[in-house]
Write a protein that binds this DNA or RNA. Structure first.
Lengths: 187, 187
DNA sequence: TCGGGCATGTAATACGTTACATGATTCA
DNA sequence: TGAATCATGTAACGTATTACATGCCCGA
């Protein structure tokens, strides 16, 4: 069975399943918090919404907008909700895993260790920052965890993933810095 | 300063910096072991090699090939090596982080918990398998760690990343399974 | 003899980013 | 007055996947 829409389409449906939104609002949520695991520019979202509309997975109501055109508040349709629900439990296609920092690391043996240490220190700082944010969010949630069946359950689940991911990344950066430091001053 | 080539170009250079190869061999290494952090199809590699050639970053020697055409054994040029070395320590552009399983998780609250458990169990198995492989490789390396300046250092560094990544993923999958199981039979 | 590995490439299509284009309101 | 936010869209370009096209050699 061919999929109804691209993965981006499901990302949009996942956002609309939580709240009706304009294309602009979807784009905003695509930056934060969805941006940690899926991204899209507003132009891509607008074009994809037209496809979802043609497929009957979303509908919209017009409202007077700030610009020259009316704004369109999109909603997920029952068919859209069904399609999303079915897609969620389908096994994810093995995906292209692209990680520029790791690729650089693969070729790191050619480069200057001191510059590499600086690069990994910058990366480490970023990961520690994010980890701090996630841990704060986690603390607020842990007290009474949201039950399955509510959107907040999804929030908690992806937060948990981000948390362990940032820990792993920070740990690896520290290991890299340690290894590279040793190569600078061998005992 | 505009980059000399796309990221894929640097991935190819990183492979050629280890050993001269035909386009076919590069494609093979792009599946394993490079495939864990960068992927490309052979058609993309062939076209990109032509660009790298035009830019003077690679050269090739012809040899009689199995098919109708001669095979081309590519080498990285000194300029290619310089470009790669310089690229390695440039800060990575923040990249589009796309993870289908996490996206599904974000919408998981809509779906059937039992099916979700199955999906995460499958994912967990895959991560544990890989972790096993990585740990075996690691054990073989840990005894005498390769020094910086050798390609094997790059191998070890990316292996270390894979190791902590798979651990994080497996841990998260177990947490998800646990959460979802609780929602099935609440005490 | 038939499928898989080795080896080269092109073409069509899909997906994603950046730039272009418009325009009201709000806040400094 | 000028930048930021809200709000819509199109066009051009770059990157990536899939399909098409060829053909030898080797082992089952």
């Amino acid at each position: 069975m061919a999929p109804m829409t691209s993965t981006l389409g499901f990302a949009i449906l996942a956002v609309l399943a939580r709240a009706d939104s304009t294309g602009y609002e979807i784009a905003t949520r695509m930056r934060h918090p969805v941006g940690r695991f899926w991204t899209a520019s507003h132009s891509q979202i607008h074009t994809d919404l037209q496809r979802l509309l043609a497929a009957g997975l979303v509908s919209y109501a017009t409202a007077p907008g700030p610009g020259p055109q009316d704004k369109k508040v999109y909603s997920i349709t029952p068919q859209g909700r069904d399609a999303l629900r079915a897609w969620v439990t389908e096994p994810p296609r093995s995906q292209p895993e692209r990680d520029e920092l790791v690729l650089k690391t693969y070729a790191a043996w050619l480069a200057d260790p001191a510059s590499l240490i600086e690069m990994f220190r910058t990366a480490l700082r970023r990961h520690e920052e994010r980890l701090g944010e996630y841990e704060a969010d986690w603390g607020a949630m842990e007290a009474d965890p949201p039950p399955f069946g509510t959107p907040a359950f999804g929030n908690m689940a992806v937060l948990r993933c981000g948390l362990t991911y940032e820990r792993h990344r920070a740990e690896w950066c520290r290991w890299m810095i340690d290894q590279l430091s040793r190569s600078l001053k061998p005992s």
